[in-house]
Design a protein around this nucleic acid. Sequence first.
DNA 1: TATTGTTATACTCTATAACTATA
DNA 2: TATAGTTATAGAGTATAACAATA
Lengths: 133, 133
Amino acid sequence: MLQPFVRALIAAELPVLARHGISMWGYVVLNALDGGPARTQAALAQTIGADKTRIIATLDELQQAGLITREPDPADRRARLLSITQAGQQTRLAAQAEIQANENRILARLPAGDRQAFLRAAQTLSALPLDEI
Amino acid sequence: MLQPFVRALIAAELPVLARHGISMWGYVVLNALDGGPARTQAALAQTIGADKTRIIATLDELQQAGLITREPDPADRRARLLSITQAGQQTRLAAQAEIQANENRILARLPAGDRQAFLRAAQTLSALPLDEI
DNA sequence: TATTGTTATACTCTATAACTATA
DNA sequence: TATAGTTATAGAGTATAACAATA
């Protein structure tokens, strides 16, 4: 039931993100890394609910744009340590401000209590491991 | 943020729907028609947030399975009048019972108040015209 | 032998455009 | 000329499998 709504929401956000030079998955990655660096790409992919092969092109772009760092782990040179840069944080905050403004416009149709509960629930549910669904 | 969650939810529902012999869009169509017949296929597509070309195969299957009727409108023979049949309602209710049981299992992680508010909000938001997002 | 990251490929879903029939 | 439905095609997004490097 929510699928068309989520799809439309993403479609509405794409032009905003494009103005900041990032893709939707790029934005998701920046948000995830803002909570702390990732030890491996696979771990990052899992936390954002994506396939590990799906974020490679995204990481390439973010790295080339200087929004993240991506260095081989000295302790295990197979793995790449991923961190958000200062420029990445700035981009993330700027994009987030615009996106949340649009989201607030839409969520304004809900009663205040429902709005907060919806946001809390969305955060909880999206953090669930996908194999528990 | 919600996209991977919604995707996983749909993936979890697909086997349930398959046991009842319908697709995800078939289930969405049955739910929409349960609220009342549709005057045109395009109108139905819009109410469920789908493209008009995307539901044609779905309608073919539902009609062949006897879950909906699809008759030319005598007043405008270009249009097709769509209604759910009694068999369609039975299938819909049976599938809905299983799906909601699974949803309740997942939503049980939320506080009771948030759970109800989330469901109310999801219903409101998914009913929004997509071009207002 | 197992794991990380990568690449190549195939598959699914969706959207766009062209066509038929009715109006 | 415009609209409802259909079909065909192309495109985006995603997942699967095979590969190279490291452990």
